[in-house]
Design a binder for these strands. Structure first.
Lengths: 210, 210, 210, 210
DNA sequence: TATTAACCGAGACGGTACGTCGGGTCTTGTA
DNA sequence: TACAAGACCCGACGTACCGTCTCGGTTAATA
């Protein structure tokens, strides 16, 4: 008897991990060269040296593939180094996020998959778990640090705390996104300083209210 | 600036204004039913009772058509009623913008055309002039009113004033956009109040700094 | 009023007769080069300088297209020159038919479409009207001539006459087909003479029976 | 002559004879259900409860497999019972051959593999040895019997005798094939009688010629 | 009022990509 | 070594849209 792995497939040739990697790399390269609109799955497959069927066996379509391809970039490039103070931490994450959004593959892909996700719940869930929620942990971590430093009070009502974190997350991510992709202007250190000051000021004033 | 465009055509049958209207209406209807991704120009044409030729004579492609179709909604539905105070004005515009973004045609279209525009300068310019700049005037108007009420100081340096308005615009538009489309959560009066308080608090604290 | 062609399409761009011709030519060329098995409609289209859609607008599939393409060859190359006697006429048509079946495009195509037609009634009808029935008229014409010459009696029962013609048709066409494609041996003048003698002898002996 | 083919493999697991049988049965079943055109080797393998590898180890492709599958039917169902006279013997073999060709698996397969064989010499050889030559022995046997009965003379020139047998074979097999598959009409006893009469009459008249 | 140039609908056209299917090969674990 | 399973590469399938191009026919400003 032995084995009987509960869910896993047991027989047949196993899927090639090499192929997975090659496909995601090819997807990012194609995004850089062609952008979302002109990217085709046939082209991705041939760049990856892989048959189209191999690609479709793993991903249901362009959107799902691109989400996974750019999610890896978010994992690699977003972190929250401790800069010693709340405003400096915010500046840091803003600059990091902006740098990510200015990469050609991210810039062209992120808005597109979000647009698709407005009509596709499964895709939205995938974006949320692969990209959005991971960014949000940075906000939570930043708050913890600020509270440890005494820069922010400990919130007594946990519901209010969550709402507050969500708000701050939308403010930071949304503002940088809009600046970068809609206004199409670059984020430099000075802009990051101004924006972080605004947020910190806002937090301070809100914190004083009951 | 009367009429008589010097090089304009003079003879022949003029274009049907009826057709323009029918096409834009059909575009919005198709966006609601199908979303950006599944919208096809052939379908728009047949909904509008119009030949594809007629459509292509007026718009270069899907993106341009959709920008014009949703721009009309922005023109119709965005304004800045005077609610008597800066924070209330911000709350009002936030709720209005959120309501617009929750319409199915806007939700699916706006991110998509922005995504396309990351690779197409002409499209970006069209979006800017047809949609973005018109929203920005609301920010400028709001500032004027707040200054007239004495809620905000007059900025002496015009460059700094512009930068400030741009920042506030990115904060407001970006946050609402992110909340609505990325976080996919609705904007209610309470959220609008919290967010507006944050912005006003931030503005106050920044205003006090040199 | 005037026109109103009852069934014909009136509006829109008319179909290109040039395309029809180019597609059939390309089909024959591809049959020669590749044979039935390796012939693809995409390749035919590109040889013809035509889009695949143009091809599919006219023909439902490979079989239908090939039937039409080879039918044209039958029309061009089968006739019944009067050689002055029944046996000589049969020899002539046998040689002609064999020459047709030895062309590479016919050889590879005819059996293939007949094979397909065993499962497709519409295809069988198409083959019958485009190819088979036209050959059969040669048999009927040959009989008329032979009767005019006094070589064959006039059949009094029309049903028996039809059955007889069908039989002779199956004998002639079938034997040549089998010799050429199944036995895969060539048909020369001597073989044609032997075969025609057999048929004429058989006819004579049958004719003497009640 | 038992086994022990000199160069044959000796070690390892021997091939399953069960699998061979299951594959050929599955092939015939699939031919009946799907016809040649829609028959796929993957489907045959799964019907047979066998991996595709196992199938490809034994046959090079669809054509070869189908030739073997239908050849078995020819072996089973063709024989030449002695009916006491040349014409009756011919009628018998005609009816038998026609019955075979009216089976769905034979009907759809035979023309298809012959069509393939026009471009594939190895396949043609396989068809010849597995199917055609076995039918031809019936013709030779029939001639022997007729000569024994005194219905046909002994041919002095062996070359002419071979040519004659080939001709009669093409006439009989070809005519039945054409009647059944091209004309798509059934072969009944009366048609068989007419046709056999024609052949016997032809043979008689030819026999009298030098 | 007649001319005439630009418009209009319909739909065929050459393309490109789609997502699926089948062919034949290869790579697992098991017998 | 064979076997079942199933992933692999390849190439064709038939469809859908793209944006362009004829068609025959209409319409309004101009001459």
């Amino acid at each position: 008897m032995t084995s009987a792995s509960p869910s896993g497939r047991r027989t047949g040739r196993p899927r090639s991990a090499e192929a997975d990697r090659a496909i995601l790399d090819a997807t990012r390269a194609a995004l850089v060269e062609l952008g979302w609109g002109k990217l085709t799955l046939g082209d991705v497959a041939s760049r990856a040296g892989v048959a189209k069927t191999t690609l479709y066996r793993r991903w249901a379509g362009k959107s799902e593939l691109v989400v996974d391809a750019v999610a890896a970039l978010f994992d690699e490039h977003l972190e929250l180094p401790d800069r010693g103070g709340l405003q400096a931490d915010i500046e840091g994450v803003v600059l990091q996020f902006a740098a990510l959004l200015e990469r050609p593959e991210t810039k062209t892909a992120l808005m597109a998959v979000v647009a698709e996700s407005t009509r596709d719940d499964a895709l939205r869930a995938r974006i949320r778990s692969a990209i959005v929620d991971r960014q949000k942990t940075l906000v939570l971590l930043g708050r913890e640090r600020a509270q440890a430093r005494g820069e922010l009070p400990h919130e007594s009502d946990p519901g209010a705390a969550d709402r507050n974190a969500d708000l701050i997350f939308d403010v930071i991510a949304g503002t940088v996104l809009h600046r970068t992709l809609v206004s199409a202007e670059s984020v430099d250190a000075e802009w990051a300083r101004s924006f972080a000051a605004l947020v910190v000021g806002g937090l301070a004033s809100v914190g004083t209210l009951p």
